[in-house]
Design a binder for these strands. Structure first.
Lengths: 169, 169
DNA sequence: TAAATTAGTTATATTTGCCAACTATTTTAA
DNA sequence: TTAAAATAGTTGGCAAATATAACTAATTTA
């Protein structure tokens, strides 16, 4: 098996390949948990406990209709609760349960230790540049027209159906 | 919508988010084509015309059973052919057709111009470091135990079914 | 206060991802 | 030199992910 080391591959493709392998390793390390998916959402909740579903969608680039099932799954697993915001009853706050808090800690550790591991051969400066550039690429991309996924397609008017192509590898 | 700029997010997650947006933008730019998927495979073929299916799988981290359908799709679209290697009849060479060559050129240009665009605010040195680190992270990950996807699970012996968890976000 | 917007849900269809089991072929090791 | 193992690719099936339209309910706006 060759690493894509030397290969001429676009940066988005390279990033996708890296993230696939990353989640492959991570899920191996978290095999003992009774959830086997959505680790990144639990990681996010560790920092954003009590945020809304939409907030998770915005930050992790996940479609809101998919998010409903994610939340259902994590509720069934007993990791989170979904509470209506009394001040804006459209919004649902997602909060970690006692069980969720406990396991989320392990998940956060697994992510952090994996990051440490793979960055261990990289200098501190290079790591900082890497992260900075990764963030900058992401924000540049957000300014460009895209086949959107995840943002509030709304109808109301009949717009010509134009068969939107959607992002695929 | 917030960019994940300042956010505490693991590097694999950041990379995944970036690549999602990247493909969203790319597919918008290639809407005019009569294929609406698998641009990265065609990009890869531009450099590796005549390689085997397995070679694509190895380099783009795609499962070989999924690859079968990808190849079928691209054959039906008239972009590629699948030819048995006479020297090792297990292998199938994937070659671009005349039509495939023509459109692949446009696809390669779209990838390259997108890369140029998003790197335009980044110095040459930073870009080089970014690419280098991205490759290094990927190879580090390849050394770690993973829930593998894409590599030749073979049976032959009855191994305990152990319900493998597989990489998910 | 009517219209528009927002958060979230439901339903449905398509596509993808993963795996077991399979064929055909080639490599290896006894 | 041949039986066993490995490799490349295929098939079928199921679970999960993705896409999109249409919906409710609540809130904001004009």
């Amino acid at each position: 098996m060759q690493t894509s080391e030397k290969m001429n591959v676009p940066v988005g493709t390279k990033a996708l390949i890296m993230s696939k392998r990353y989640y492959g390793v991570l899920s191996k390390r978290l095999e003992n948990l009774d959830v086997e998916r959505y680790f990144s959402i639990l990681y996010f909740l560790a920092d954003n406990d009590g945020c809304t579903q939409q907030h998770i969608c915005n930050n992790l680039a996940i479609d809101k209709t998919a998010m409903v099932k994610v939340i259902d799954y994590l509720i069934k697993a007993g990791y989170i609760d979904r509470n209506v915001n009394p001040d804006d009853r459209r919004e649902h706050f997602i909060v970690l349960t006692r069980k969720g808090l406990k396991h989320t800690e392990e998940i956060v550790d697994a992510f952090k230790s994996l990051d440490d591991k793979i960055f261990s051969e990289v200098t501190k400066t290079e790591k900082e540049i890497f992260i900075k550039v990764l963030c900058r690429l992401t924000s540049s991309l957000e300014l460009l027209p895209a086949n959107d996924l995840f943002f509030n397609y709304k109808k109301t008017e009949k717009k010509k159906k134009k068969k939107t192509n959607v992002a695929k590898l």
